[in-house]
Design a protein around this nucleic acid. Structure first.
Lengths: 192, 192
DNA sequence: ATCGTTTCTTGATATAAATCAATCGCAATA
DNA sequence: TATTGCGATTGATTTATATCAAGAAACGAT
C-alpha cells in the first residue's frame, strides 16, 4: 500500500499546512526503503546523505566510546531519524544508525531537501519547526538526565514509555538510561 | 555606540546573507537592553516572550531540582540566549535565565519574530539554520556528557574553554559539568 | 529440536563521586 | 579597619553504581 506517503503528509501537516500543488513535488523526492533487522543505515565517519522517516520498525542511534556502544535514542513509527547533525553540517557522522527490527522507511537525500527548502516556503518553515521540535525534545531529555538518579530515570521511562521494553533489548535501554545492564536488571526485578 | 547592530548582522550573516532592504525592517524589531549582574531575565513558570542576543557580559541558564540549581549553560559575546523551548512552544519555562555579569543584550519578542518569519524567506531560513546550529551543539554536548568521566569532562573543558573559569564562579561550572563544587575543587588542585 | 551465541540475572567486591563537616579566604559593606 | 557572609578548599565517611564473575534463559541458525 502507498499510504506510507499519507502518513508522512499527516506527520508534516502537524507542523505546517502544505498546499496540494507543492506537495506533489515535495513528496516525489522521498523514496521508500525496506531494511532487515541489523541493517546499518549510517556508519561513524560517513557523511550522512539521507534524512529518514520511520514508518514501521525500530531504528537505534548510537555512538562508540572505547569499543563500548552508547545508545543515544530510538525511533519508531512516525519519527524521523538519521545522523542529523552530519546531514546538516556535511561533516563525518559521530553516530551509527541501525535498524534493530525489520523497518520500512522513507528517505530523502541532502540535495533534494536543499532544493525543496529553496523552492517552497512551506518546506523551509517545516524545516525550521522540525528543528525546533527536535531541539525541544533534547532540552527535555537533557533536564531529565541531569535531574534524576539512575533509579528515577528508570522509573520515569517505565511510566512514560513502558512499551519500549517490548521493542528494544535491555542492554540498549540501559545504555540509553546511562547505566549498566546489570543495574537495569536489578531495578526491574526489585519492583517485581 | 550602535555597532551592537553591526555585530548582530555579522552573526546572522554567518548563516544567511540578508538583503539590505529586508535588513532594515528585520533589525528594527531588536531592542537593546542593559542589565546588572544578578538580573533575572526569565523565571521558571513564566512563558518566555523574548529571544536574546548577548553582545557583552555573561548569561547563565539553570533549572531547579529540589532547591538545588543545575546550570545548563552559559552565553557570552555573540551567543543567543533565552528560555528558547518556552519561547517556541509558548509553554511555561523550565529554566531560569540570569545575568551573572553586567550584560548588554538585544532582544526581540515572539510576535515580532513570527512576523519576520512570515515576511522574509531569509528570516525563515535563518530560523531553520539557527535551530540547526543549536541542535548540533546539543548533540555534541550530549555525547560529551555521556562519553566521559567527571575528571575527563573537567580536563576537556579546561582545554577547550579555560577562559570560562575567569567568567563563571566554580560552583556553577561544577554543576554544568555534572559534579559537586567539592569534586571540581579537588580536580583543579590535583593538577596544580 | 538442538547447538551455540548472546542476553539477562544474581552475587560479591571495588570505586568514583557525593555528602557531611570544618576551616580558610576574600570581597562587599558598615 | 572590623564584620559579615558566601565561595573555595580540605579531610573523613558514605553511597550509588560499576565492575567482575558465573550461571540461567532466550534466541537464531543449522
Amino acid at each position: 500500500m502507498n499510504d506510507i506517503y499519507k502518513d508522512l503528509r499527516e506527520q508534516i501537516t502537524r507542523l505546517v499546512p502544505f498546499p496540494d500543488a507543492d506537495w506533489q513535488d515535495f513528496v516525489s523526492h522521498w523514496h521508500p526503503m525496506d531494511v532487515a533487522k541489523g541493517a546499518v543505515l549510517t556508519k561513524i565517519g560517513q557523511v550522512e546523505d539521507y534524512f529518514y522517516y520511520v514508518h514501521d520498525g525500530v531504528v537505534r542511534v548510537y555512538a562508540l566510546k572505547d569499543g563500548e556502544d552508547i545508545s543515544i535514542g530510538f525511533s519508531y513509527n512516525g519519527d524521523y531519524t538519521g545522523a542529523y547533525d552530519s546531514f546538516l553540517t556535511r561533516a563525518p557522522s559521530e553516530w551509527y544508525i541501525e535498524a534493530i527490527a525489520p523497518t520500512r522507511l522513507l528517505k530523502i537525500d541532502y540535495n533534494a531537501l536543499s532544493y525543496l527548502f529553496d523552492q517552497y516556503k512551506a518546506a523551509e518553515r517545516w524545516g525550521r519547526l522540525f528543528n525546533a521540535q527536535i531541539l525541544i525534545g533534547m532540552f527535555r531529555r537533557q533536564l531529565e538526565t541531569r535531574s534524576y538518579s539512575a533509579e528515577e530515570r528508570f522509573e520515569r521511562l517505565m511510566q512514560q514509555s513502558a512499551h519500549i521494553f517490548q521493542l528494544v533489548p535491555q542492554k540498549y535501554i540501559a545504555s540509553y538510561l546511562g547505566m549498566t545492564p546489570e543495574t537495569l536488571s536489578r531495578m526491574r526485578n526489585k519492583s517485581r
